[in-house]
Design a protein around this nucleic acid. Structure first.
Lengths: 172, 172
DNA sequence: ATAATATTCTTCGTGTACGATATAATAATG
DNA sequence: CATTATTATATCGTACACGAAGAATATTAT
């Protein structure tokens, strides 16, 4: 005698399905390519900003600082990313791609599986916009009163300033 | 010199934000109420079906069998759920709420935070439908060629049949 | 100057979440 | 009826993902 699910519950279920599809794809990536989805996201963001602190990195990609630290740990262990201690402010820890990291991110595979990208790009522009704005609206409704810790879900991406970039040296 | 993100990438980012908001809410639930989001989902599904196998449970809520096993482990440890070995088919493992589990699920808090529920229910019906169908469409595009293992993302919920329900006994 | 406060990052503990593999039981096949 | 394949579940190892607490540094107040 299955209970009726209301629409907001169905939204949740669908989100879980999406998350799952992404997760499964991530595992597949890790297996065939060696990098998981989150690792690729991190590397892509670092590539985009050249150099930035782990805190800004976390903000930009909407993950907690703790999570980013552990992902960066793995990337450092594999020689794809360097950590750089700030000089001006020694609390800060900058991250940067290594040579190897650069080449990896260059031939990076698509984050979502190709069928999705293909389907999505096959849509009319207005349809893509509609879908994007729909989920953004859902996201906005969820954020309303949340997130007061060290991360803003909706924020402007942050890069290291030119000045900051000048002010670092490699840790041994 | 931030690279331009294309629309499909923005979709991903937004999904990550949604997932994060849900995760944060889940932690908050766990802290104030003692049960996380996934644990509530599992209990709600068991409540809806009365009795069902862990396999069907996993299918119904779109999680892998392994994941569900570990969630059920915790619920059993806390005396909210019972595992029941099938008699007719001894491979099967049924799950059922305990007395305590029932009372817990009765006064369960809402899975999403109230602000979302409130905002969402404040929308016109057609708007709710639009949002739901939008994310379902995204989900469909992602599933296309995925998921061949032990779970179908889109499937009819499964309950134990009356016959099956008659055929069990409690494991000590 | 120095004590109190705030920022930045890491470490720790818990809880998902998955595939691969193991184990057991049932069903299918020769 | 024995062997093999299939099914159902659990276990293992890895990787997120988070908040809380800790350590180091910087800022502010006294």
């Amino acid at each position: 005698m299955a209970r009726e699910k209301d629409v907001s519950e169905e939204v949740l279920v669908t989100i879980r399905q999406i998350v799952r599809a992404i997760g499964i794809h991530s595992k597949k990536l890790a297996k065939t390519y060696g990098l998981t989805g989150p690792q690729l996201i991190v590397m892509q963001e670092i590539a985009d900003r050249e150099v930035l602190t782990t805190g800004d990195l976390a903000k930009n990609i909407s993950l907690s600082h703790a999570t980013v630290t552990s992902i960066v740990d793995r990337l450092v262990a594999r020689g794809l990313v360097n950590r750089i201690r700030g000089v001006q402010d020694k609390r800060k820890m900058y991250v940067q791609l290594t040579e190897e990291g650069h080449t990896q991110v260059m031939n990076k595979p698509s984050m979502l599986h190709d069928t999705f990208i293909k389907s999505f790009k096959g849509l009319e522009t207005w349809e893509q916009t509609l879908l994007l704005s729909s989920i953004q609206r859902i996201a906005a409704m969820m954020n309303a009163s949340e997130i007061k810790t060290d991360s803003l879900l909706i924020s402007h991406p942050v890069s290291a300033t030119a000045e900051e970039i000048r002010e670092y040296y490699k840790e041994e």
